[in-house]
Every structure is written in structure tokens, then in C-alpha cells.
């Protein structure tokens, strides 16, 4: 009898677990602005995030099942591809841009270096279809997922529908990416008055506020605008930047300002990965700037930093490393999901 008493509530709970979606609570870090994503309209659910994570790590999204999103966006390097200046895709084909670090995307409105993508949902379409990245078609991805053993079940859990659509596939990937929040660096803890900068870091922070934060604005360390920071155009790539999308001459050579969070790990730097070290970046800002019609006004006059200043500035930039983010197991390869599928 006692057993029965237990079984009933347990099975009710189990039933509920299958029908109700577990809400994934997205917390806005203290002192941060409202995200661009409206989570009231479209709340995250644990099931969708988990499905999205599986898809993010699954090479089934590429034509020959060799490349996953994670091939170019590795968690330990803040979701960028280290050691490659330009991204490496299918059959080792080389792209035209450096893969950006992925974090705090819920605050972004436009994606890609030139803002060609207007919503996080549709972001994944670009790499999936790019012939030098995954070289696949979303139509075909959906067919492959539908045929698989694993996915109809995961889609059923996430969307209450085992019929897989492009919309649901994309939304799941987007939900996973929205959970990638980095807000636990030393810098953050100093701002919350839980720890203190060293004297050197403090000097670096002051230099940063004076010279850099108009574009790399706190707390996201990007103002999310398109700016030209005076990089001379690479003559082989001839990347025109934002003008490619808007066809407006004022946008020539402008690129989306990247975040500097986890910058220690997200080398190489810039849209074409031209710099390997932070030192190279600072040298660019002090002596490498090429003036142009569209250069941002903050950089018309050179930035002056002594070599000591540069050391201090780098010390500050290293306080933006967030180990909790880099080693967050919720972002890592979902071994449990794939292992279970292999057993079935």
C-alpha cells in the first residue's frame, strides 16, 4: 500500500515532466541592460536548449557530416576557432573571415562582422549553407534529422511535435546560443565589489576607459555598433565590411565591434584574424591606424600609450577572462545525449 502511495505521485510527476516544458531561467546579470531578445515573448525551455546544444555539436548539419558549429566555435576558447586566422570548414576549405567568439548574444541585434544576419534564429542558416563552411541545405538537414533515431524524440520533447521543421531546428540552436552568458570575470567581481583590481589592473582600467570604452563599452565590452578602427584593408581579401550589406558608402570598412570579454582566449584577433597577440592589437591602435573617409572619429587622432601603459592595459584585459564560462559544463559537448542515442 505504501508503495502504491509512492508510485502514484511519482508517475504523476513523470507524466508532468513529459508534458510540461521546464523553464530555463535566464538571469540578467546585475547592472546589465535589458537584453535585445524578448524572453517574455519566447521563453527558453530546458528541452529546447538541450536540443540546440546537441545540434550545435552535431556534424550532421554539414554535407558530409564532418563539421559541426563547434568545429569553429570551441567552448574553451570562448566559442571561437583558435590557431586559424580565417575559419576552416568542410574539406579544409578556408573562409574569408575569422570566427568571432560567441557570448552574450542575447544582447546583440545584428550578427556577423558586417551585420548581415538580422536575428539570432536565422544565424545558423549562414554557416549551414556556406560552401566553404558546412555546404549543406537546411531542407536536407531537416530530412536527415527526421530520419535519425535521436532527433524526432528530442524535437517531440522540445516542441511537442516530432515532425521536424526548419523553424524548430533553427529556434533550438538559437536557444542554446542565447544561454551563453559570460558575466563572471574578475572585472565583474570587482564591479560587484567582491574583489579588487591590482594597482596595475586599475591603471589599465583607467587607460581603457579613456581610450577604448567608447566602442568596447561596458558591461558587454561592445557598443554593438559598426565602426572602422583603422585597419588597412587586406589586399587579398578586400573585405569591404558593413557596406556589403547596406551598399551605403558611409559603411565602408566598418565592422561590428567585437566584445573583449575572454579576449585572452579568443585570439587571433580582428575580422581576418591578422593579429595573434594583444600586444599587436595595441600597437595597431598606437601606430598602425590608417586614416580613411569612414574611420571612427575617436581614432582620427592617434591613441598615445607608453610601453608601460600597454602592459597595464593588457593586465586589465586579462581580468575579462571568465573561467566559469569557459569551463561551464552546460556548454560542453553533450556526451550524455549522444551516448544514449548510440546505445538505442
Amino acid at each position: 500500500m505504501k508503495k502504491l502511495l509512492l508510485i502514484i505521485p511519482v508517475s504523476v510527476l513523470l507524466l508532468l515532466a513529459f508534458t510540461l516544458q521546464e523553464k530555463y531561467s535566464f538571469t540578467i546579470p546585475q547592472g546589465w541592460p535589458e537584453p535585445n531578445t524578448d524572453f517574455k515573448k519566447e521563453p527558453l525551455s530546458l528541452e529546447k536548449v538541450e536540443l540546440g546544444r546537441a545540434l550545435f555539436y552535431d556534424p550532421v548539419l554539414s554535407r558530409d557530416s564532418t563539421i559541426s558549429c563547434a568545429s569553429c566555435h570551441l567552448v574553451y576558447t570562448a566559442f571561437t576557432h583558435v590557431d586559424h586566422d580565417l575559419s576552416h570548414g568542410i574539406n579544409d576549405k578556408i573562409g574569408t573571415r575569422n570566427s568571432p567568439a560567441l557570448m552574450n548574444l542575447a544582447w546583440h541585434k545584428l550578427f556577423m562582422w558586417d551585420g548581415a544576419v538580422n536575428h539570432i534564429d536565422v544565424q545558423a542558416l549562414a554557416p549551414i549553407s556556406n560552401p566553404v563552411e558546412m555546404d549543406e541545405k537546411i531542407e536536407h538537414v531537416v530530412e536527415k534529422l527526421q530520419r535519425s533515431k535521436l532527433y524526432p524524440r528530442l524535437f517531440k520533447k522540445a516542441f511537442n511535435d516530432s515532425l521536424i521543421t526548419g523553424q524548430h531546428t533553427l529556434k533550438a540552436i538559437a536557444q542554446f546560443m542565447l544561454t551563453l552568458v559570460s558575466s563572471e570575470s574578475k572585472y565583474d567581481s570587482v564591479m560587484r565589489k567582491h574583489s579588487k583590481f591590482t594597482a596595475q589592473e586599475k591603471k589599465g582600467y583607467d587607460l581603457f576607459k579613456k581610450n577604448c570604452s567608447s566602442c568596447h563599452t561596458e558591461p558587454l565590452f561592445t557598443n554593438l555598433q559598426f565602426e572602422s578602427n583603422g585597419l588597412p584593408q587586406d589586399p587579398t581579401l578586400k573585405d569591404p565590411g558593413r557596406i556589403k550589406v547596406t551598399k551605403n558608402p558611409v559603411d565602408s570598412l566598418k565592422f561590428k565591434v567585437p566584445t573583449l570579454r575572454n579576449i585572452e582566449f579568443s585570439y587571433p584577433y580582428m575580422h581576418d584574424g591578422r593579429f595573434k597577440r594583444l600586444q599587436d592589437v595595441l600597437n595597431h591602435y598606437t601606430s598602425g591606424i590608417k586614416q580613411s573617409q569612414t574611420i571612427s572619429k575617436q581614432l582620427v587622432n592617434p591613441i598615445i600609450l607608453s610601453s608601460n601603459d600597454k602592459v597595464d592595459l593588457v593586465a586589465f584585459l586579462l581580468t575579462l577572462t571568465d573561467r566559469k564560462f569557459l569551463f561551464n559544463k552546460n556548454y560542453a559537448y553533450p556526451r550524455n545525449i549522444f551516448a544514449k542515442a548510440a546505445q538505442d
Binding site: V117, N118, I120, V122, A126, E139, T165, Q167, K171, V245
Partner: peptide, 23 residues
């Protein structure tokens, strides 16, 4: 056009969505 991934006739699998530049 700026409402993310949509379904039905608007599903991006219908071959009427640009992939490298949203729209």
C-alpha cells in the same frame, strides 16, 4: 523579415530565404 525563424510557408526550408544575408 526581422522576426526570426518562422513556420509554414515562411519556413526557411521552402527555398525562399537568403542564407548569407537575412531576408
Amino acid at each position: 523579415n526581422v522576426s526570426g525563424a518562422l513556420g509554414g510557408d515562411l519556413d526557411p526550408t521552402k527555398g525562399m530565404y537568403w542564407t548569407w544575408q537575412s531576408g
